[in-house]
């Protein structure tokens, strides 16, 4: 009995001593700033900064290999805190939000064939460039919805992706997976957009979509500062976005939308409150 207690205790002591020495000798130096930054980061591991996860980004920021203002989900707050820890001046980027530049869901846009395959936009796009007649319209099969780390994207019953301005953090993951490039980034403060992604001529657009831009130039005539038309598609000039909302009523196909009046038809998201503040993930 005694021998057993002594021998086991002895082994315990020796092992403890060995562990103690090893812990000192092989200790990994962690920069305290790295831990502090990791604490601040949203922890979504979304990859918006270009690195696979938040811990990698924290390490990169501390050793100076990557800029400290690339965490879009964290927003300006996070950038300021990181800058404070590093003792540098904060250069915040203008907050951005992802927008689906299409309103042509299955009730408003036609299909060139009936698609019964894999429910994935990239798979559908490989078959005759996707089932939609429009070459740029949202396919609505939810590839963006599945990659969004923040649950900011929904697919309506009629097959249209809608992005919540409140939940979107601007990580751009959806922009990368969309095969039709119908999701693009826009300044958060701009609420008026031309929700169309077709560069076809007006007569053709009318054939396949009720809410597509036909490049009639009425918006540009009424607010020449706020709109430009390139390759048969109108676009809001975001530097002058405040003047863009004035022509909403004049657009014949109603492809221009002001998000303060609500999201496209079929969306379950509540209309955004004004002014919209950047998404925070605490």
């Amino acid at each position: 009995m005694l021998a057993a207690v002594l021998s086991l205790g002895g082994i315990g002591l020796v092992a403890a001593a060995a562990l103690g020495v090893a812990a000192k000798k092989f200790a990994v130096e962690v920069d305290p700033r790295e831990a502090a930054i990791l604490e601040i980061l949203p922890g979504a591991n979304c990859g918006a900064c270009g690195l696979p996860g938040c811990s990698g980004y924290a390490k990169g920021v501390v050793d100076g290999s990557i800029a400290p203002n690339l965490c879009t989900p964290g927003g300006s707050d996070t950038v300021e805190k990181i800058a404070h820890i590093l003792g540098v001046e904060a250069i915040t980027a203008e907050p951005k939000v992802a927008v689906v530049f299409c309103q042509g869901d299955n009730s408003k846009a036609t299909e060139k064939y009936r698609y019964l395959g894999l429910q994935d936009c990239n798979a559908a796009q490989k078959i005759a460039d996707g089932p939609k007649s429009c070459p740029g319209g949202c396919l609505g099969l939810g590839t963006c919805e599945r990659v969004c780390p923040f649950g900011a994207i929904e697919i309506t019953a009629e097959g249209l992706a809608v992005i919540s301005r409140e939940k979107c953090t601007g990580c751009e993951k959806c922009v990368g997976v969309c095969p039709r490039k119908v999701i693009r980034m826009a300044p958060l403060e701009a609420t008026t957009h031309v929700l169309c992604n077709s560069h076809d001529k007006g007569a053709l657009v009318r054939k396949y979509c009720q809410v597509g831009c036909i490049a009639c130039t009425i918006c540009k005539k009424n607010a020449p500062e706020a709109y430009q038309i390139e390759n048969f598609l109108a676009e809001v000039i975001y530097e002058k976005h405040s003047e863009a909302a004035g022509v909403l009523e004049k657009c014949p196909t109603k492809c221009i939308r002001d998000f303060t009046t609500g999201y496209p038809e079929g969306s379950s998201f509540a209309p955004p409150t004004v002014p919209v503040t950047p998404a925070q993930n605490d």
């Binding site: 019964l116 395959g117 894999l118 994935d120 990239n122 798979a123 490989k126 078959i127």
Partner: peptide, 11 residues
């Protein structure tokens, strides 16, 4: 849609 899924993986 098995073949299409496999083709998607191949891509």
């Amino acid at each position: 849609p098995l073949v299409q899924s496999i083709r998607h993986a191949k891509g």
